[in-house]
Structures are given as structure tokens and as C-alpha cells.
């Protein structure tokens, strides 16, 4: 019997190695795998490369780091972030400025497509996004149909951390509203895809037409309490 449910956070985090590339889903606090990130903090892996849409919020003067990504950075466990936003007055911005962490800042659509490509077995692709900008530095350039395009590489993860709204024991997933965001493509691009979800159901309860991420892309599922996404600042 296929059963992808794990019983504990320790079991969910088992085997994440130092030096791993970790895909972290979510847009702001919506669809973000917060419980799994807490588990990763506890688990201890270091020298990580994090792939995440935003590298964290602005830190208010005198305040501790907010959010698990910022805390991982502040613990010195992140070697590099690949992201579409590094805010100047965030923990990530401070660490990049001090030369203590590397940041690869890429257009959001290129980030999404690099992840999708990884999941679909496409090693690289040409896109006009970023041509003639700082993003193009060091990249192969070709003209297609009169447009200048740059070569972008696929972005697979050793691990993907996913937040779903509901899952069954095969790992079939559905998402809630705009909480879908990076979750389906990161699930496809992770060699080890770990899902947190507040709702579990029997096989067949997610009707075949309604499955958003089929279980083939999922390795482990951990049930967690419902987390209501926080308001933006």
C-alpha cells in the first residue's frame, strides 16, 4: 500500500543534507510551508541554497528577524538565495551587503519557468526577459524572431517544501486560492518533495478532475494545524 503520510516532523525532515538546494514555496505568507521551515531550523542542515520568491521582509530597527527564511539566514545556515526580491533593509539585504551570503536575483517569471523546466526535464531555455539588463550579464545571447534572448538554466531542488490545503495518502494535492502559487511547480522540481497540509482525506475524495498536483510529484506528507496567512506589513 502506498502511504506517503509521515508521523513526525523528524521523519519529514530526515535526510536533508548540508549543502542542499531547498525550494521554498509561497508568496508572502500565503501558501508558505511555515511548519516545515520550522522543522528545517530544528533539523540543523546548513550551507543551504534557498530558492524562494522573496528573501524576507524589511526588518524594523531593533526587532528580531521575522519569518523562518530570515531566521535561517541569521543563523548563518544559508550560503545563497535565488530569489526575485532582496529588500535592502531585510536580514537578507544586510547579509548580502556584508558579503556573508550570495544572492542571485532573477525576474519572477524566469524564476518560475526555471523551476517548471527542472520539473519537466528541460535543462535550459532562451527567453527575452532580462535581455539588455543586468540580469543578462554572463549569459549566452541569441536572436530569435528578431528578439534578443538570453539562456536561462533549469533550477531543480534537492528538496522542495510545499504547503497544500488537502492531501490523500498517494500525495495528490489541492491548494487554496492564491496559496497555489509556486507550490505545484516546486513539487515537480524537487528530488525530495515534502508537503505540509492541514487536511487529509481518503483516496478518491479529491476527484480525479480536481487533482492539481498528482502524487507522482510528492514523496512525504505531514499533517499540520491550519495556519491563517498573516496580513502584510
Amino acid at each position: 500500500m502506498i502511504d506517503k503520510f509521515v508521523r513526525s516532523m523528524a521523519e519529514a525532515m530526515n535526510g536533508i543534507a548540508d549543502g542542499a538546494t531547498v525550494l521554498v514555496a509561497g508568496f508572502g505568507d500565503v501558501g508558505s510551508p511555515n511548519a516545515l521551515l520550522e522543522g528545517l531550523i530544528e533539523q540543523g542542515a546548513t550551507d543551504l541554497t534557498l530558492v524562494v520568491n522573496s528573501a524576507g521582509r524589511v526588518r524594523k530597527p531593533g526587532q528580531p528577524a521575522q519569518g523562518a527564511v530570515a531566521r535561517l539566514i541569521e543563523m548563518g545556515r544559508v550560503r545563497k538565495v535565488i530569489t526575485s526580491f532582496v529588500r535592502a533593509n531585510s536580514v537578507a539585504g544586510e547579509w548580502v551587503k556584508a558579503g556573508r551570503m550570495e544572492a542571485e536575483v532573477v525576474p519572477q517569471g524566469t524564476l518560475a519557468e526555471r523551476i517548471r523546466a527542472a520539473g519537466a526535464g528541460i535543462p535550459a531555455f532562451f527567453t527575452p526577459t532580462g535581455a539588455d539588463t543586468l540580469v543578462a550579464e554572463g549569459k549566452e545571447v541569441r536572436d530569435y524572431d528578431g528578439r534578443r534572448c538570453i539562456l536561462e538554466r533549469a533550477l531543480p531542488g534537492d528538496v522542495a517544501l510545499i504547503d497544500a490545503w488537502m492531501a490523500d495518502r498517494w500525495g495528490n494535492l489541492v491548494f487554496r486560492d492564491s496559496g497555489r502559487n509556486f507550490n505545484p511547480i516546486m513539487a515537480m522540481a524537487g528530488r525530495l518533495t515534502i508537503v505540509q497540509t492541514p487536511h487529509v482525506c481518503d483516496l478518491g475524495q479529491i476527484e480525479a478532475n480536481g487533482v492539481v498536483t498528482p502524487g507522482i510529484f510528492v514523496d512525504r506528507v505531514l499533517r499540520v494545524p491550519v495556519h491563517e496567512p498573516a496580513l502584510p506589513e
Partner: peptide, 27 residues
């Protein structure tokens, strides 16, 4: 609805006829 936000992460609504897609489809 805390799960329904726009690109500024402000809470919004969706019209009848609207749809949700993942990030690669959105882009």
C-alpha cells in the same frame, strides 16, 4: 479571505469567472 491576495500581498476578491493558476502558468 487570507488565502486570496494580489501581487502586493494585499487581500483582494475574485470575480465570478475568475481562476487560480500556479506561478508558471501565471507568467
Amino acid at each position: 479571505n487570507p488565502w486570496l491576495v494580489n501581487a502586493s500581498t494585499h487581500r483582494v476578491s475574485i470575480r465570478p469567472g475568475g481562476s487560480f493558476v500556479h506561478h508558471a502558468d501565471s507568467f
